[in-house]
């Protein structure tokens, strides 16, 4: 999952980036509202974490601007002000949830995951597509109730597929999703991971959950 993190405090930003990366997210960071707005327009993120008190353009203004441009991805606001005025204004401006500083990192992860699964149309933390089940919190995957062991990349990919069912994802989008900006991408790697995932999720070739669309990418769908 790829997140955009806009926070003006350098130390907190670095700490959150490192913790979120450790938790398996791909994180893009910036320190002011204007850059944050630019990045959300240019790149696709599954979720944005925005601090309200930002220099140049306030978090609320960034959210309002994005929502007026029909930006549909979930937004979580971080705020130092715990007054309901700020919470209500933030949420009514278009944010989906808020978190008051200071917060437990586990709480941030829980909120982010809940928002991601809601965006994917799931009501509980266990995502289900046919016989395939994925628990966002525990990161466990089952096929026909049998646990399946996945690598970090494979897990990221299956979570992406589960949260974006029926949608076509190009190799570029997937590579962008799996790697940080700085890493050089190799589209062959995506093919390799997809192939391994197909084998692990569908060893006897009955289910065919990942469809290859020539020249366009992949589509995850359970018939």
């Amino acid at each position: 999952m790829k997140l955009l993190l806009i926070e003006d405090d350098e130390i907190l930003l670095a700490q959150l980036e490192s913790n979120l990366t450790k938790a398996g997210f791909t994180v893009d960071c910036c320190q002011d509202g204007e850059e944050g707005l630019y990045r959300s327009r240019e790149f696709v993120y599954d979720l944005a974490i925005i601090d309200i008190g930002l220099p140049k353009l306030s978090g609320i203004d960034v959210i309002k601007q994005l929502r007026s441009e029909k930006y549909t991805h979930p937004i979580l606001i971080l705020t130092a002000r715990s007054s309901w005025q700020d919470k209500v204004h933030g949420l009514n401006a278009g944010a989906d949830d808020y978190l008051v500083k200071p917060f437990q990192f586990e709480e941030l992860i829980a909120r982010v995951q809940a928002m991601l699964r809601r965006a994917g149309g799931y009501a509980s933390n266990v995502l289900e597509q046919g016989p395939i089940k994925l628990n966002i919190e525990t990161q466990e995957v089952w096929v026909n109730e049998i646990p399946v062991k996945l690598t970090a990349f494979e897990h990221k990919l299956v979570q992406y597929f589960m949260l974006h069912p029926q949608r076509v994802a190009s190799k570029i989008v997937l590579a962008d999703y799996l790697y940080d900006e700085e890493v050089e991408r190799d589209s062959n790697v995506i093919e390799v991971i997809v192939a391994r995932l197909r084998q692990k999720l569908d060893p006897d070739g009955q289910l065919k959950p990942i469809e290859t669309l020539r020249g366009r990418g992949y589509r995850f769908a359970i018939k």
């Binding site: 130390i11 907190l12 700490q15 130092a80 500083k101 200071p102 437990q104």
Partner: peptide, 14 residues
């Protein structure tokens, strides 16, 4: 609030 709570968030993270 901002100047107190951001460092608190860092401490809490650490």
């Amino acid at each position: 609030a901002h100047s107190l709570k951001t460092p608190m968030a860092i401490i809490s993270g650490e």
